[in-house]
Simulated assay, not measured.
Amino acid sequence: MINFDKNKYLPYGKQKITRSDISAVVRTLKSNFLTQGPKVPQFEENLSKIVESKYAVAVNSATSALHIACLALDLKKGDRLWTSPISFVASSNCALYCGAIVDFVDINPRSGLIDENLLEKKLETAALKKELPKVIVPVHLAGTSCNMEKIYKLSNKYNFKIIEDASHALGGEYKNQPIGNCKYSHITVFSFHPVKIITTGEGGIATTNSSFLAKKMTELRSHGINKNESEFFSKEEGLWHYEQINLGFNYRLSDIHAALGISQLKRLRKIIEERNKILKIYKSLGKNLKISFLEIPEDCKSAVHLGIIKLNTDDPEEHKKIFKNMRMKNIGVQLHYIPIHTHPFYKKLGFKYGDFPQSEIYAKKAMSLPLFPGLNKKNQMQVINYLKDLIK
């Protein structure tokens, strides 16, 4: 447990490492394999069972997973990828890595998720202009699934591929099924950064039900190299032989990282329940404040990666003032996220303020409160009391 002290910093998120986690990593450090050993396949298998996907490909970050997912779906120069402006830049950068064109679909301000109705309208217009996207990346902000059934139906009509950016959402559910089972997508990506649901230190994974996509991503994560003798182009070489068949990358996850992931996965269910409990307490403590929490649709069980509130103010200066004063109290509130299209780099691509108004309004109201395993009610009361004083 964290005992709040005004001289200590209470972050918006952090990892929780147990003795079992440490023992698992130490055992791997003492083993014969620090990388390219048995732990990565074991981690992939364990996670696949949990999310009910056929395949999983572990890599060194969710950013890498998004990149190779795009490449596996043959996203290339001149193609288009659409995603949400309210996400980390990796959700759109993955398209630029492939030479593709990026665009965005604005959010539903109540949930912070991509607005499927705006998506449908934008697709109708794009079809007339013959500028349809090849890939769409719905972002499961704060651990809550987008309306994937609707997006999937649109994909059948407009012939685009779907990569779920579920970096926040491991352990969450959509329509009573685990996020990551790819029922409504081609590939789902998870992150294992230390502030995420579970951690491998740094790491990510892509799940899929396609053997072709899994094989392609497996090759791409390791230099584009194939070691399957039955598929070699040269049949008469020696036992040392392997072949590079694509331009790939060194995106491998080490056995050390995977060992930590295997250990953390064992308590995933408890982590999700604790996160939901913490959010419920926040909602109870803050029910009389001039704030609102992001809506979680009834057909979703959120992984609750973040505890995002929106201040009921139209004054961005008040948002800045409250944010600054919370930080001065050593409470590590954060904004998730700066709308991607407003970053200087994306402005150079032609985006500007006003392009996605709901995302811009959201960013002037939103604030992530501390939320992580081990956060106790006393800490939460302190956070809400400070917030109450500042809002007054």
Rank of each mutant, 00 (worst) to 15 (best):
I22S: 05
F104H: 02
L113P: 01
K365H: 02
G37H: 03
C94V: 15
I187M: 07
F351S: 09
M148C: 11
F160E: 04
K77A: 06
L289G: 01
N32L: 07
K301H: 03
S84L: 09
W240Y: 11
H67M: 08
E219D: 07
L71P: 00
P194L: 06
K196D: 15
Y353L: 15
A56I: 12
K175D: 12
L387P: 01
K320Y: 06
C94I: 08
I291A: 01
H305M: 13
S185F: 03
L123S: 07
C70E: 07
K301N: 07
L123V: 05
E318Y: 04
L132A: 01
K266I: 01
L371I: 13
T342R: 10
K301S: 04
G13P: 00
S211N: 10
L96F: 02
I17G: 01
Y353V: 08
I205S: 00
K77V: 13
K352P: 04
E202T: 11
S145L: 01
I151S: 09
Y346V: 09
Y158H: 04
S48R: 13
N181C: 15
N3T: 12
I308A: 05
E219Y: 03
A56N: 04
L75P: 02
Q36P: 00
E131A: 12
Y184K: 07
E295A: 10
F88M: 02
H336I: 14
V89C: 00
D115F: 00
Y386D: 01
S254D: 10
R110A: 10
H241N: 14
P316F: 11
N385V: 04
T342E: 05
N156T: 12
L75S: 00
K129L: 14
P357E: 15
H336V: 14
E231W: 03
A56T: 12
M381W: 03
E317L: 15
C94F: 06
C70V: 06
F88A: 00
C182Q: 08
E45L: 12
E243C: 08
V333A: 05
I225P: 04
T35L: 07
A72Y: 01
D21M: 03
P316L: 13
P373I: 15
S222K: 14
N288C: 01
E243T: 06
G171R: 14
S91D: 13
K77N: 08
S302P: 02
G78K: 13
F4V: 03
Y184G: 11
V135N: 03
R27L: 13
E295M: 02
K196N: 12
L311F: 11
I391P: 01
Q15K: 12
S359P: 05
Y337H: 14
W240L: 15
H343W: 08
I197H: 04
S210K: 12
K175L: 14
I256R: 01
A259W: 07
I225L: 10
K16W: 12
N181S: 14
K122V: 03
K183Q: 12
E164W: 01
K392A: 09
Y174I: 03
K347C: 10
C182R: 06
P41V: 13
I262M: 07
I2Y: 15
T313Q: 10
I291H: 05
T35A: 14
R269F: 14
E237W: 00
Y174N: 11
H223E: 13
Y362H: 10
N32G: 09
P339N: 09
R327L: 15
G201E: 10
P109F: 04
D79M: 12
K6I: 05
A214V: 11
K235N: 10
L260W: 09
